[in-house]
Design a protein around this nucleic acid. Sequence first.
RNA 1: GGCCUCAUGGUCAAGCGGUUAAGACGCCGCCCUCUCACGGCGGAAUCAGGGGUUCGAGUCCCCUUGAGGCUACCA
Length: 545
Amino acid sequence: MDYKKIAQLLYPDVTETPEDIFKRYPRRQLKEGQVVTRFAPSPTGLMHIGNFFQAFISYNLAKNSNGILFLRIEDTDEKRKVKEAKAVIYDVLERFGIKFDEYQTLDGKDIGDYGPYVQSQREGIYKVFAKKLVEEGCAFPCFCKKTEGKEDVLKLRETKFYEDDEKEYDPCRDLSYEEVKKHIDNGESFAIRLKTKNTGKERIKFYDLIKGELEAKANAKDFVLVKSDGIPPYAFAHAIDDTLMGTTVAVRGEEYISSTPAHLELFEALGFTPIKYCHNPLICKMDENGNRRKISKRYDPEANMMYYFEKGYPVDSVLEYLLNMINSGFEIWRKNNPDKPWQEFKFGINDITAVAPLFDMVKLNDISKNVIARQSGEELFANWLFWAKEYDAPFAEILEKNKAKFTKVCAMDRDGATKPRKDIYNYSMMKDNFDYIFSRPTSYELDSADTDKANEFLSEYLKTFAMPSSNVEWFEGVKALAEKLGYAIDNKLYKQNPDAYKGNTAKACEFIRVAITGHKNSPSLFTIMQILGEDEVKARLSHKF
RNA sequence: GGCCUCAUGGUCAAGCGGUUAAGACGCCGCCCUCUCACGGCGGAAUCAGGGGUUCGAGUCCCCUUGAGGCUACCA
């Protein structure tokens, strides 16, 4: 076979050899244990939580080993490309504080020695290796009609079910030079396929950092290396880029396990040393039948990382939740180190859980409550304002104009408290939570049976009302009045004989609370009164139910 | 259909041949308490099923079942 001649026919303009390329990408000098890994997203227009999960695992792997993390944009699928999608990726990563040692800036400048870090700019490199494979008879041009799209796959599946042939050799795999020339002279475009050496009977073993030893049927398919548009699909680009860029560990989704044998054969054909794989489980949701399904951007708003910004979750809440999913040892560590930043938590690759976890919003909220509880009033205010500026601008203005007041609101049961409140898990809920601060109540959660008693109590209370200077003073005043009006101030006595009283101290406080906040529940009333000021408090207490 | 992965309470999970089978979220009860929240104490709830191996199995092996993934010139 005239492999060399065929290769020359296919790629007359390619003059470089793989050796030339390798000279431009020298081997990284690494210390023992240092991990070089990457995040390699496709620009699809949104950052999916599953993708981000991988980015976060890679980030931690690199960080924990003092290694290197780089960002590579995998924009080889023309059909899926979305405008501005790159910006979305960069935006999300930056907000979450995922920093890369090497990447390409948005305006196209490569930071790092192994670029370009965008696959569509590496076409020339891929061609050199494609040509080499053809020369060696490891790959061949294919002139068949494109098969693409899910429908074709489904059709293919139907017919293939009943074939007992294990291998999938392509009809073009043994085209002669003359035949190839005829196609080329016709101006036909071609794809390059791997000429698999396997017959479908071979088995292959490989090691996965999460799953351990894995065994599967070796690849026996002449899969596509370069599409007819000249751009390689995932496998070929992966093998070449991760080799040239010196990746030591590739973190990717579990769905790639099935194609790993193909990737391994490709590494071998290219003469590359295989890299290590870390196939992480997919984040799932429960469907209506109680089954797991991949969390999806279509049905689950929380699949899109922007969701957390819109709702105003602190980035640390999301990150700590993800960390908890990666390794539940984090939870114990967090309990023992309540004040340390999560960055200090170290884990190894082997600690990563192998099971697809169900996304649990309730758990995220709990983690987030604790994250927010660690903030001071001032920090909370700053974060609240920062969030409002982006997602509720008119409200942000109000916050800014009343900074002192709202800082106090944020500090309620928080600054100086040994057990801070844990009732807020994102910034978007705060407006509703503190609605009584912004405006007088428009509705009151008072039981209708209590109307008369409440009116009586409040009018008496208002008669002698003066702004208290301490919580104790305030509460003593309330108790004194309550007792005078026939309320039980000893709750045990009240419980023994409730009919002997109009109510207890709690009831009396409820009247004040509902008048001031509209709600039956609130943080410390004394603090709220201080924030609102005497005039406003009096005005609210004068309300008639 | 074939190939692959996974399987401990409702959820996240510890466990690496001998444990009263940790812990967290959620749920329930009690205590604290001006309400809520916080905090404290307690409770219900798990080894998918069946075979082996072993003195001994959640842990090792096999089968079954269930769930998920792949089976594209998508990643």
